[in-house]
Design a protein around this nucleic acid. Structure first.
Lengths: 217, 217
DNA sequence: GGAGTTACGCTACGACTCGTAGCGAAAGCG
DNA sequence: CGCTTTCGCTACGAGTCGTAGCGTAACTCC
C-alpha cells in the first residue's frame, strides 16, 4: 500500500505487527470518537507505538483511515447462489453489513469528503476500496451471461457504461439507505431493490436488442 | 433554523445581514479549503464579523456547514416536463448540478459522516436537506398517477416503502456517480439511468397488480 | 563479528485552532 | 430615557499538529 516495490534490502525492517496494531487502533478510535475527534497521537497510544512511527508510514489522518477502513472490505466476495437475483441480493447484504459498522460509516464517508479536494487520496480510495466492489459487478455479469440470464454484450463501450451504471446504482442505493436514510438494509429491502434493478436491466436489454425505442432521444 | 419560535421581542435584534454573510463565507471557505481545513475563525474574518458572534448562533462547525450547504438546495424544484421520464431526468440533472459544486461535495459528505455519531446533526440534515429532495419523489409520483403513467397505490405501507426505495436509488446513484466514481452526470447518463429505473418500476408494478410472481420469496 | 543502514521510542518544540470569558459600545423597545 | 440583547474586540488555557533531535534496537552485507 504505502510501501511500493522499492523496499530497501538493508537496515532494520518495519514491524508488520505495528502496522496491524495501528490499523486496529484506528478502527477502534473511529468507533469511539468518530473521524473528526480522532487524533494521531491517540491512535499511537492505543497501538502502543510512538507518534513518530505513525508519521513515518502514513502522510496523515486521511491515508491512515483509508487503509484502516479498506481492510473491512477484504471479506467482500461473490459466492455463487445459483441465479443473478440471488447473487445481487447476496452482495447487497454483504456490502450493507460492512457499511453498518460504525467505523466504516464515519471513516469511509469522511475520507470520501476529503477526497473531493485531494486527487491522490481519491485514487487511493479507488484502488483499495472501490475497485474491489466494482469487480463484483463484473463477475456477476459474467456469471449471469454464462447462465444465459443476460445476453452477451456486443459493443464493449456500451457494456462498460452499463456496468458503471449498475455499480453506481447498487453501491449508491445501499450507501444512501444506510447513511442518509439511516434505515437498515434488511432482506426485505434487498429483495425489493434487486427486483426493481433486474426488471430495469431486463427491459433495457430487451429494448436495446429488440424492437423499438419508446424513449426517443 | 437555529432560532426557533421564541424570538425575544426586546433588545438589539440579530443582524440578518450577518447571517447571510456568514453562510456565504462558509461556502467560500469550503471551496478554498475543504471541510477539514475550514476554521471558524477564518469564516468569521471572511464574513466581517467577530468569532464570538459566530459561536452565539451556531453550536459548531457541523451545524454551520449544514445550514450553509442547505441553502444550495433551495433551488431544487420539479418543473412539469410532461412525462414521468422527463421529470425524473430533470430532477436528476438538477440534483447533479448542485452536487457538482465543490462546496456541496465536501461540505455535505463531511457532515453526513459526522452525523453517523450525532443524532441531532442527522435530524438537522434530514429536515433541511434530505426532506426537500424526498418531497420531489412524492410529487413526481402524484403527477405520474394523475397522468396515468403509474397505477394508484392501494396499500399505503407498500407505497411508502416504494417511495423510500426510489428515493434511495435516485439520490444514491447520483451521489455515488458524482462523488465516488467522480464522473459527470451528463444527459446521456441521466437518460440511461432513468430508463433502467422506469422499466424496473413498471415491471415491479405489473408483477404486483398483474399476474404471476416469477421471483418467489 | 564488525560496519553500515534503517526503524524505533522518547522528548521537546513552535505554530495553530479551539471554545469561552470579560469588557464597553451599539441598536432596538416601552 | 432605562432595559435588554447583540456586537466587536481582546485575551486566555487547553489541546493538537507535524517535525527535529537523540540514543538504541534490529537486520544485512562483507
Amino acid at each position: 500500500m504505502h510501501r511500493p516495490a522499492s523496499a530497501p534490502r538493508t537496515g532494520r525492517p518495519r514491524s508488520v505487527a505495528a502496522d496491524a496494531a495501528i490499523l486496529a487502533a484506528t478502527r477502534a478510535a473511529l468507533v469511539e470518537l468518530g473521524w473528526s475527534k480522532l487524533t494521531l497521537g491517540d491512535v499511537a497510544t492505543r497501538a502502543g507505538v510512538a507518534k513518530t512511527t505513525l508519521y513515518r508510514r502514513w502522510a496523515g489522518k486521511n491515508e491512515l483511515v483509508v487503509d484502516a477502513v479498506a481492510a473491512l472490505f477484504d471479506e467482500l466476495e461473490l459466492p455463487d447462489r445459483g441465479s443473478l437475483a440471488a447473487d445481487i441480493e447476496g452482495v447487497v447484504l454483504q456490502f450493507a453489513a460492512i457499511l453498518a459498522r460504525p467505523e466504516a460509516k464515519s471513516g469511509l464517508m469522511a475520507v470520501l469528503a476529503e477526497s473531493t479536494r485531494d486527487d491522490a487520496l481519491r485514487e487511493r480510495i479507488r484502488a483499495s476500496v472501490v475497485d474491489r466492489q466494482k469487480r463484483l459487478v463484473l463477475e456477476g455479469r459474467t456469471r449471469a451471461q454464462a447462465r444465459g440470464e443476460l445476453p452477451a454484450e456486443e459493443d464493449p463501450g456500451s457494456a462498460a457504461r452499463t456496468a458503471d451504471l449498475i455499480f453506481d446504482v447498487v453501491a449508491g442505493a445501499v450507501v444512501h439507505r444506510t447513511l442518509v436514510s439511516a434505515e437498515p438494509v434488511d432482506l426485505e429491502w434487498a429483495r425489493g431493490f434487486t427486483r426493481v434493478l433486474l426488471l430495469g436491466l431486463a427491459g433495457a436489454a430487451a429494448a436495446q436488442n429488440g424492437p423499438p425505442g419508446e424513449l426517443p432521444g
